[in-house]
């Protein structure tokens, strides 16, 4: 038999094809998430949003991409060239690689709706996203100028503070599900979605996820009113674009995690099973994306010391308390 078609290599081919499709889907959804955001914010502020390119502004992402590609790629004289060039790629690669373990629909016989079904799924996601911060903090440092440095220091402190509360809020779900596999967690929500018994954990997760993705009202890292553009002030052209893509993909990622862990993943609402699982999954993710945009259009940016105090003195204790109570209830009920 041809070596390219043996069972071993067909497995490799399947993974490669899945990766290709996934890359395409994620990049496309990034592009339209951006348009979605600009449209929704436009409507919330009583203006039409982008509507010049293509019908209903649908070709806007394409033109934006073209603009970024054609712009000059600047490197400041004071920058550290190696790290400065490396940083956007750290951000983007970690943002993409999370999708290797996210399941998008119910696994069929001998087939999964994911590149790989890892049993420690949620832990792998936490591990990969914890590396993503380096893109921002190293990029800000390597720019060799003051505003990016401030942005990078802020991001470091903010990420560490909110990552703790985020992990704490997820452990409650892991205790209820009794597994770290994402497919297993979704399957254990067949009867009751975890956002009901884990309501506190759910709220804490949503809040910390906004902070972890540097979105308003927690976008202190790029705070344009104080820091020009924060960590990405010196970046231009495609390198800036890479950071931008990474930010939106991270938004999609945290929406996917929230869907899988708290909103029952691909489980249908009210027995409406004629819509396939993937449809439900995408609907729930879109709901979270809308909430993100809604938050951005609603809240003013929070002050830095309040952000820190909120993370350490409110979110972390409440998440810990929630964890202890959950563990106690699960232990008592056996």
């Amino acid at each position: 038999m041809n070596a390219w078609l043996s069972p071993q290599s067909s497995l490799w081919w399947a993974v490669l094809i899945k990766c290709g499709v996934l890359l395409f889907v994620v990049i496309t959804s990034f592009a339209y998430a951006m348009l979605f955001e600009r449209k929704i914010i436009g409507w919330m502020q009583l203006r039409p949003g982008p509507n010049r390119v293509g019908p209903w502004g649908l070709l806007q992402p394409l033109v934006d991409a073209l603009k970024l590609i054609l712009k000059e790629d600047l490197t400041p004289k004071t920058a550290d060239p190696l790290i400065y060039r490396l940083a956007p790629f750290i951000s983007l690669v970690t943002a993409f690689s999370v999708y290797a373990v996210i399941p998008f629909s119910e696994p069929g016989p001998g087939n999964v709706w994911a590149v790989g079904d890892v049993n420690a799924g949620i832990l792998v996601i936490l591990a990969i996203t914890s590396i993503g911060v380096y893109g921002i903090s190293l990029g800000g440092w390597a720019s060799g100028s003051k505003y990016p440095l401030l942005g990078s220091v802020r991001s470091t402190a903010q990420m560490i503070s909110y990552e703790l509360a985020m992990a704490m809020s997820l452990i409650g779900v892991l205790i209820l599900a009794g597994t770290t596999s994402l497919v297993g967690i979704v399957n254990s929500q067949a009867k009751l979605w975890f956002f009901i018994p884990q309501f506190v954990g759910f709220i804490i997760y949503v809040v910390t996820a906004v902070a972890e993705t540097n979105r308003a009202p927690f976008d202190l890292v790029e705070a344009d009113a104080e820091l020009v553009g924060g960590f990405n002030t010196e970046y231009s052209g495609l390198r800036f674009g890479l950071f931008f893509i990474a930010e939106y993909i991270n938004m999609l990622t945290v929406s996917c995690i929230a869907t899988l862990l708290f909103l029952g993943g691909w489980n249908a609402v009210g027995g409406l099973t004629m819509i396939p699982g993937i449809g439900w999954f995408l609907l729930k993710v879109a709901f979270f994306m809308f909430v993100y945009i809604w938050l951005r259009a609603t809240f003013p940016r929070i002050r830095y010391d309040r952000l820190m105090a909120f993370g350490w003195k409110v979110l972390l204790p409440v998440a810990t308390l929630n964890l202890v109570i959950t563990a106690f209830v699960v232990a008592v009920r056996g």
Binding site: L126, A127, E163
Partner: peptide, 29 residues
């Protein structure tokens, strides 16, 4: 598997991050 994940979360995600924090503040420029 677990050790690998913990290696990334604890060392890369938290401890090394603190190194970056200190180095970025102290040795910039």
């Amino acid at each position: 598997e677990f050790l690998a994940v913990i290696q990334l979360i604890v060392y890369s995600g938290a401890i090394l991050m603190l190194f970056v924090f200190v180095i970025a503040l102290l040795s910039s420029g």
